[in-house]
Simulated assay, not measured.
Amino acid sequence: MIKVFLVLLVFSFLPTSFVKAQQLNVMFLNPGHPSDNPTGHFWPNVNYFMQEAADDLNINLKTIYANRNHILMKSFAKDVIENKPDFAVIVNEKGVATSLVNKITAQKIKVFMLLNDLTNEELNALTPEQREYYAGSLIPNNFDAGFTLAEQLHQSINFSNSDSQSKVNILALHGDETSPASIARAEGLQSFITDNRNINLIDSTVANWSKQQAYEKVSGILKHQKIDIIWAANDAMACGATSAVINAGKADSMLIGGINWDDDIPLGRLSVSVGGHVTLGAYAMVLLKEQWLRVSKAKRVKHSIFQHSNVEAYETFMTALKQKRFHRCDFTQFLSNHTKAQTFSIENLICH
């Protein structure tokens, strides 16, 4: 009893820096906004899942937000270097990652890529020493997301159309021209179009992930084009397109879908949404904890997480997200050395 008391006494007088050193420290450079914004709820929700997992895994998580400003994002290397975390989590949007990785790894701080990885060319350009501090990546299969969204929309319009051989006019709204996720989703869409000869891509434009920009662009295109399907690379743009279609009085003749599973969208507002990847920040916490514990090594992971909103789990998941009930989930169960280790999936995340 006396020994236990002495141990507790010693720990109570340890400096904060020592206690912090015993905890995994992670810094997340979030490219989005911390709350409601024109690009949707995706990035605030990414952070929500990361924090829930960090709490369960005893990880000290600090997040800074770029508010969709890639110039500001580049300056975050200074913040990381000042904080000296064990890992910096970076999203490769609009090509900013290379500069960040170069500066951060030069200070012997490990970097982990989330949702948008370095390209193979960017990775190969790293020096051997930089490569030592590249802690891997976690991305979803964005090609599949783009393909699945087009497939679900196409199936829906064929189901309601007596002449399945007639041409189907698709308008595509892309996020940007440089992010790996945006490029891969566009490639998925193009693959589906190539496989289906009755599809006519009448226009393809970038709306910068923005609800307002999508609204403005679709409003203009509707004045001179007949559209059957609007394919959007995220839900915010899909919602902007929906508003434009409603204002034009054409809501009954069009199917609109997006990607993200944003929780601020009323049920039925979109014809279909593809998502699930909003949870991957939580899985990143699991992978980093395993590296820190030396249970696993750095690796590039492409995780099959995407599902469409017509699956049974969708409504249950979205209800839990809106009510912020994922604190009920034990994220330690996704550690590979857990006694009852589970696969990281939408179904296993739903805790009633």
Rank of each mutant, 00 (worst) to 15 (best):
H224S: 15
K226P: 02
I227D: 04
I227H: 08
D228L: 13
D228C: 01
I230T: 01
I230G: 03
W231S: 00
W231F: 06
A233V: 02
A233G: 04
A233N: 05
D235T: 00
A236E: 01
M237A: 00
A238L: 02
A238N: 03
A238P: 01
A238S: 01
A238D: 02
C239N: 06
C239I: 10
G240M: 09
T242F: 12
S243V: 15
A244F: 03
V245T: 07
V245D: 11
I246C: 06
N247Q: 14
N247S: 11
A248C: 07
A251E: 12
A251M: 09
S253T: 14
S253K: 14
S253A: 12
S253I: 08
S253Y: 08
L255V: 07
G258Y: 05
I259M: 08
N260I: 00
N260D: 13
N260F: 04
W261T: 00
D264P: 07
I265M: 09
P266I: 10
P266W: 12
P266Y: 14
P266L: 14
G268Q: 09
R269I: 07
R269L: 13
L270E: 00
S271A: 11
V272Q: 03
S273E: 02
S273L: 04
S273I: 01
V274E: 00
V274C: 00
G275A: 06
G275P: 00
H277F: 03
H277N: 03
V278Y: 06
L280V: 14
L280E: 08
Y283D: 07
Y283P: 06
Y283E: 07
A284K: 12
A284C: 11
A284Q: 10
M285N: 11
M285L: 04
M285S: 05
V286G: 03
V286L: 05
V286C: 01
V286P: 00
L287F: 05
L287N: 02
L288W: 03
K289D: 06
K289H: 04
E290N: 13
E290F: 05
Q291T: 07
L293S: 10
L293C: 06
R294G: 07
R294W: 06
R294T: 12
R294C: 06
V295W: 10
K297Y: 10
A298L: 09
A298I: 11
A298P: 05
K299E: 14
R300H: 13
V301D: 00
V301W: 03
K302G: 04
H303N: 03
I305Q: 05
F306Y: 15
F306A: 12
Q307Y: 13
Q307S: 15
Q307L: 15
H308F: 11
S309A: 08
N310A: 06
N310W: 12
E312V: 09
A313Q: 14
Y314S: 10
Y314R: 13
E315L: 15
E315V: 12
T316V: 13
T316Q: 13
T316D: 08
T316P: 02
M318A: 06
M318C: 01
T319Q: 14
A320G: 12
A320W: 10
K322I: 08
K322H: 10
Q323M: 15
Q323D: 12
R325Q: 14
F326S: 01
F326N: 01
F326I: 01
H327F: 11
H327K: 15
R328L: 14
R328T: 09
R328M: 12
C329W: 09
C329F: 10
F331E: 06
Q333Y: 07
L335Y: 03
S336L: 05
S336Y: 04
S336R: 10
N337F: 15
N337T: 11
